[in-house]
Design a protein around this nucleic acid. Structure first.
Lengths: 206, 206
DNA sequence: TTCACATTGTGAAAGTTTTCACAGTCAAAC
DNA sequence: GTTTGACTGTGAAAACTTTCACAATGTGAA
């Protein structure tokens, strides 16, 4: 199994490669990708090694082949669908942020407990009452959940998601969720991020 | 210097401790804090060791003392002020998210290049034209910047921030910023986070 | 064909982070 | 006073991640 830091970087590499491909570049060396990603060339080569792709000592990596290889490791061939729970400011921002970007991995339904927010369409994404989550997860084969509710409700929502059969959660609430070990949770903790920045802004020598 | 992962966990511990304190709890053991934070007791003890606080073998850690100790390591006694650049959906969501939470670390000014978004007050935070960033950074002694602009403009904004004297950046744009080594950058890469969740949602054994 | 050379792939080293495991400590019970 | 037991603090081990350094390789030039 590929370690989770590597997965993160592969996702980054792919984004950078796609940008480069749009500029007409056909192949790339580890040191170029490294410079763009802010890592070392050796790290790039190791990461690419981990997905089993090989470059050419003279021309580096073929862009389209490498992008394909990353896709083969990261993407589900059938695509994966995500739900978003909590249509507040942050939830709406995320719907906008992710809408229409990647067909393979899209947020296909939103949920909220506030009836006033339901039965609307936000960024092409229909909003349902939270009680319809299990039904919709089954119907649309949703495997991923995004939690953007207030912290007090996050655990309740996580429990509901797990019962509905969701396998991975991206959690924006500043709470550690308790879930079974076969459900993956990625915390996006913005408060922690801001406090880290504040600390290092002070500590890094001027 | 305390490593950055430790700083992140200390920030988390403090949040958990404050929640517990509100419930009237007066002291806490490493295994309790560990359970709440989702880490091992040994890790909690190491982290607390790194800020130089000591508990009591019989009563664990004194809550208020520990919270104070963490504050002494993480917080600037004078407080720190942050600016937010990019008043789109995500920017507004963050202003709401952070508004009024911590007096020691607040977003005190917002900036946007769109004149229609300027001269308004969003969540108690005044919005200025981006050209006034240097002036306001100096005037309000802002040391931290939050980037929520489209990726194409992120590097330009980062350059402007660096020139204005900002020391730490929380970056939401999916781009690696080039900054001098005395400026700290924390990337909050939501696309990467979602792709990681998608990958592990598939890979973790059912 | 042969050479030169920038690059890849990777075993091993170095560095970093986490966990183990246990001596030392404190307070409550007796 | 002494014993007991759960907990802390921490050196050392383990696990994990990154970097080094160099043999192997493919290509273009001579």
């Amino acid at each position: 199994m590929i370690p989770d830091k590597t997965i993160g970087r592969l996702s980054l590499y792919r984004r950078l490669l796609n940008r480069l491909l749009a500029e007409g570049v056909r192949n790339v060396y580890s040191h170029q990708l490294a410079a763009m990603a802010g890592v070392t060339p050796a790290q790039v080569r190791r990461d690419i090694m981990s997905i089993g792709y090989s470059g050419n000592p003279n021309r580096g990596y073929d862009m389209t082949e490498l992008i394909d290889s990353i896709g083969q490791s990261l993407d589900d061939p059938e695509g994966q669908r995500a739900a978003l729970i909590g249509v507040g400011n942050l939830g709406r921002a995320l719907l906008t942020y992710f809408s229409g970007r990647r067909p393979r991995l899209a947020i296909v339904a939103a949920f909220d407990s506030d009836p006033r927010k339901c039965d609307r369409v936000i960024q092409g994404c229909r909003c349902f009452g939270i009680d319809r989550l299990p039904e919709k997860v089954a119907e649309m084969d949703i495997s991923i959940g995004t939690i953007t509710v207030p912290s007090g409700e996050a655990q309740k929502v996580a429990d509901l998601m797990v019962r509905a059969g969701i396998r991975g959660i991206m959690n924006f609430a500043p709470v550690r969720l308790r879930v079974p070990s076969n459900v993956y949770v990625e915390d996006v903790d913005m408060t922690m991020a801001l406090e880290k920045v504040a600390y290092f802004a002070r500590k890094i020598q001027p």
